[in-house]
């Protein structure tokens, strides 16, 4: 059964069907929040919040609308709300810097693995330096594998505009990446 059909049933009172949607989407949603906030605990809270909001506002779901776009609209709102609440707190500690090992390939030697790890760490920092709109469009298109049509519905623009924004965000990422690489080698 499609997501839209399932959410339509939830909207009509079969709230138990929300469990299926949770199983399908909680991981991508979690990675979306981690990508945006770099905080595991907060991201788990936000995923929980999104599913609760979907239950609470289930009557407002229009089955003709893309479920993915609707869910990410709620996720964006939840993210904005928590950012407003946390304004003034000390945030931005990247918990993954120390705890998560960089991905390594068995085919690579130790030096190549180390170099690859450093490249990815630099790329992650470059991504975090981007303005939030550029970062978000890369997160949605690259990490969440969202269709351009869904991103366009979410952002309220044309598909062509989404493609232009992704391209601009990639260029900005490249500039940030090389700026960081320059700082590092200087």
């Amino acid at each position: 059964m499609t997501d839209n059909a399932l959410m339509g049933l939830v909207s009509n009172g079969e709230v138990a069907k929300m469990a299926v949607l949770f199983e399908r989407h909680h991981r991508p949603l979690f990675r979306y929040f981690v990508s945006m906030n770099r905080n595991r605990e907060l991201s788990e809270d936000l995923v929980q919040d999104v599913f609760f909001r979907m239950l609470r506002y289930r009557a407002s779901y229009d089955p003709n609308q893309s479920f993915t776009a609707w869910m990410y609209q709620i996720a964006r709102n939840a993210n904005v709300d928590q950012a407003q609440k946390r304004r003034g707190e000390v945030v931005g500690i990247d918990e993954f810097d120390d705890r998560r090992p960089e991905p390594a390939s068995e085919a690579m030697g130790p030096e190549e693995n180390a170099a690859r790890g450093q490249d990815l760490a630099l790329l992650k920092r470059a991504l975090d330096r981007l303005p939030s709109d550029k970062k978000e469009i890369l997160v949605l298109s690259r990490f969440q594998d969202m269709k351009y049509e869904d991103i366009a519905a979410l952002l309220g623009c044309e598909v062509g505009t989404v493609k232009v924004r992704v391209f601009r965000a990639m260029r900005a990422l490249e500039q940030a990446y090389f700026a960081l690489a320059g700082e590092k080698s200087a």
Binding site: H26, R27, F30, R31, V34, S35, R38, R40, S43, E44, V47, F96, R100, P101, E102, P103, L120, L123, K124, L127, L138, V139, R142, F143
Partner: peptide
Amino acid sequence: LALIPGVSKEFEP
């Protein structure tokens, strides 16, 4: 981008 730790598909809640 897809290989960044914390966002790759292997990263679980």
